[in-house]
């Protein structure tokens, strides 16, 4: 995962709320078994039907509850492969937000008025370390979980980090918690 420090550049605007992952990457493109090749299908139906136009700028600004619906991480892959590096919106679905952070793609929460100002200015700068978004004529602080921030700043891989604690997982499994639940291999 690429470390994130500063994301700066022109802003693309998708002025809609409840943008769901079915729109971000429609299901007919979920049949690939690779992580690549999704960028060209981003918002496939909306773009093909001429409903929206989007430039592959570093920052995408959109409405509340962005990324709702399906858990498909393909949505984040498509956004990143299209060219976006960060999305700014008033709120996100939980799974989408988490998927962003596992891919070095920065989801920023600003309130509706701040999102509108950023969109209107057309150009933004996101400083992750300082947790500040600035644009011509304004700036805003954003919140992010410190651990998620640390991992994004360092480009750290979750699995490698967890595996450093493998002895604790071993210990958990030898305790009473390790035998909770069914043995799936007994059924097949």
């Amino acid at each position: 995962m690429e470390p994130i420090e500063i994301i700066e550049g022109p802003v693309s605007v998708l002025d809609r709320s409840d943008v769901d992952t079915d729109q971000i990457i429609p299901k007919q493109f979920l049949k690939r078994v690779e992580r690549t090749g999704f960028g060209e299908f981003l918002f496939y139906d909306w773009i093909r039907d001429g409903e929206i136009e989007l430039e592959p700028n570093p920052i995408l600004v959109s409405g509340r509850n962005f990324g709702s619906g399906s858990s498909r991480e393909h949505a984040v892959w498509a956004l990143g492969q299209f060219g976006f590096k960060a999305v700014v919106a008033p709120s996100y679905s939980d799974i989408f937000y988490s998927n962003c952070t596992k891919n070095g793609f920065l989801p920023v929460v600003l309130d509706e008025a701040e999102c509108r100002s950023l969109a209107e200015s057309g150009h933004g700068r996101i400083h992750l370390e300082e947790q500040v978004v600035s644009w011509d004529g304004g700036e805003a602080h954003f919140e992010i979980d410190p651990e998620i921030k640390r991992r994004l700043l360092g480009g750290l891989d979750d699995i490698a980090l967890t595996m450093q604690d493998e002895d604790r997982i071993d210990a958990f499994e030898s305790g009473p918690g390790g035998s909770y639940g069914p043995e799936t291999t007994a059924l097949a």
Partner: peptide
Amino acid sequence: AFGIGTSEVEHVMATQTLVQRRP
């Protein structure tokens, strides 16, 4: 019980655990 993305699927496969902030 909750849904996860593919990176988390891989994490669970590799470690049988999940990194989660308490909701």
